[in-house]
Design a protein around this nucleic acid. Structure first.
Lengths: 198, 198
DNA sequence: GTCTATAAGTTGATAGAC
DNA sequence: GTCTATCAACTTATAGAC
């Protein structure tokens, strides 16, 4: 193993480690309660060194947001392999329910981040989380459209709103079973949808 | 007018002014981004004087939370005057839609507060917002029960989750129309519910 | 009871050694 | 490229004058 390989293997991935740590810690603690030191510690990187990779704290928040959207893109990419759009949507709901323990403790990563960033009055990152949610809406809308259902965008809105609502309640009440109950309802709802008229 | 009346009229309601200001400002800016000075300024009370009425910042947060639950209790109290439980629920949805501009900018007061407080690892106020939400769940459950529907608590969960979901999406996408679209869907859903078969 | 001044502690960010 | 030491700003909370 060469020196450069060691350097890459040990220290060269610090940016990646910081991004992953930011995604996790910001989800768990929220943006405002998380300090740069918290993220640096979680990533095992010296505090002052963070600023070599990210000029500001907001840059770290943005990187965490990008990490979550990347994660979502991977998930929908996998689901796209399923031939039936309805199965893709059902599997999406199943994936949400599978994350119920995390959701009950910390909520939906994107949803809770959006709530927090939306409180900002300055025009910095207050709209960024909305784009991540729109990505999910667009994908779900495409599935409903492929199923030949009318008002596919309305259906996507209902599906995603259902997910955000059950995540928030599961979190606020600290009860993962809420994800199971509401997830089952969403699945029944998906099964009941049929193309309009005759 | 006596001196004491003046004193009550001008300065004696400072605690009330602080509570009202806290409820509004904490909803708009979030807990962590709001300083005591922000609340004091909004209430027109000198900064250092706040600590005479509230020992800590968390006491102010708790007072704001109580203000929101009080507001909710007033609303459901008014709705209780309607003879038909289904009308009560329909009016509740209408009230939510009526608040769509505020929801699109700042989200549901209780829901967004819950999201933020749930991020706390210390056992201070992290469960307090959940109690406020459970109050709404209980009231809605009672209405569904009075309608003779089966699984009234599940229905209440679906209703409140629908509200929280549409508020979060309207907020994240800055689009009050989402409240109208999803509100109409919830109303149709309420209309469609019928007691389980004979 | 009301308010001013300030203490005590924390955080984001930078300068500069290595 | 990496890290230590430190600054400057901000925030909660208190002490004490009025």
């Amino acid at each position: 193993m060469t020196d450069s390989a060691v350097s890459r293997g040990r220290g060269g991935d610090k940016r990646r480690r910081l991004t992953a740590a930011a995604a996790r810690v910001l989800h768990e603690q929220g943006v405002e309660r998380t300090t740069i030191a918290d993220i640096a510690k979680a990533a095992d990187v010296p505090v002052g060194n963070v600023y070599y990779y990210f000029k500001t704290k907001d840059d770290l928040v943005q990187a965490a947001l990008a990490e979550h959207t990347h994660h979502l893109a991977e998930l929908t990419g996998d689901l796209d392999r399923l031939p039936d759009p309805r199965d893709r949507l059902r599997s999406l709901v199943a994936a949400w329910v599978g994350q119920r323990e995390v959701a009950a403790r910390y909520g939906c990563p994107t949803g809770t981040l959006a709530v927090e960033l939306d409180k900002r009055a300055d025009g910095t990152l207050d709209r960024e989380a909305g784009r991540a949610i729109r990505q999910l809406l667009d994908w779900a809308g495409a599935q409903f459209r492929e199923l030949g259902l009318s008002d596919p965008d309305d259906l996507a809105l209902t599906l995603v709103a259902g997910y955000q609502g059950m995540s928030l309640l599961a979190n606020a009440l600290r009860d993962p079973d809420i994800m199971i109950r509401e997830g089952a309802r969403l699945t029944r709802w998906l099964d009941s949808l049929a193309p309009a008229g005759r």
